[in-house]
């Protein structure tokens, strides 16, 4: 179709006035007195008529049409899908900022984040050393203490026993960490499971320190 168009455009040059009747080669039609519509508006009027250029231009236009349509369709789909994500007020509530200055050394604090308890412990150097002393190959859920904290003096983790979801008690148990009263799971000073039915270490949420570790943003 494309090549036919450019061929025709070449042939019709200079025939603009009689062009309506020049399409048929039949001498009979040329002589005919029937009315025929004027198609000059549809003719390719490019001068010089480089067929390659014409063909490229055609493909370019159709391609650009598809390109802009694709971009518009993508934006539309994006807009509808984004209505499914959480709204700003929910997202704002999903984070909690806790000032750390009020937590003395060697003390536990329980804060609520998204309705769940989060344990924050300001650990002493002895406790940090104790947590690092453990041979992790003997653990049920082997994890280095350095993988569970960002700053070693601040241990931040979810206060939910990984066994059946009770809230463990702080500064209790055989390993100086946490003890779950429901089924007797013992956690050490890094919140790792040491004894009892729980399968995993206490979960560490995503958090980051802000204002030079003056406070912590959980979430």
């Amino acid at each position: 179709m494309l090549s036919r168009l450019s061929l025709r455009s070449g042939r019709s040059l200079g025939l603009a006035t009689t062009v309506a009747r020049s399409f048929s080669s039949s001498a009979h039609t040329l002589k005919s007195t029937y009315d025929s519509p004027d198609f000059t508006k549809y003719l390719n009027k490019s001068k010089g008529a480089n067929p390659d250029k014409t063909r490229d231009y055609t493909y370019l236009m159709v391609g650009a049409y598809g390109l802009v349509s694709a971009a518009a369709a993508k934006s539309t789909v994006d807009a509808f899908l984004s209505t499914m994500s959480a709204s700003n007020d929910v997202l704002a509530m999903a984070k909690v900022e806790i000032k750390l200055g009020s937590i003395p050394l060697g003390k536990n604090v329980v804060v609520k984040w998204q309705g769940k308890p989060v344990f924050i412990r300001h650990r002493t150097t002895d406790e940090i050393a104790e947590a690092n002393d453990v041979d992790i190959s003997t653990l049920r859920d082997p994890q280095k203490d350095s993988d569970r904290v960002i700053r070693p003096e601040w241990l931040i983790m979810m206060g939910i026993c990984t066994h059946l979801g009770c809230v463990p008690i702080g500064e209790a148990g055989d390993f100086g960490g946490w003890f779950c009263p429901c089924h007797g799971s013992h956690y050490d000073i890094s919140g790792r499971i040491r004894k009892g039915p729980a399968p995993l270490n206490l979960e560490v949420p995503h958090y980051e320190f802000v204002d030079e570790a003056e406070s912590v943003m959980i979430g």
Binding site: D52, R55, Y59, G63, L67, A71
Partner: peptide
């Protein structure tokens, strides 16, 4: 123009890929 045609437009798969990549 011939080169452009042969590299981009000739194969429909290449043409379509170009369009969708271009959309991004």
């Amino acid at each position: 123009y011939h080169t452009v045609f042969n590299t981009v437009f000739k194969r429909n798969s290449v043409f379509l890929t170009t369009i969708f990549a271009g959309a991004f």
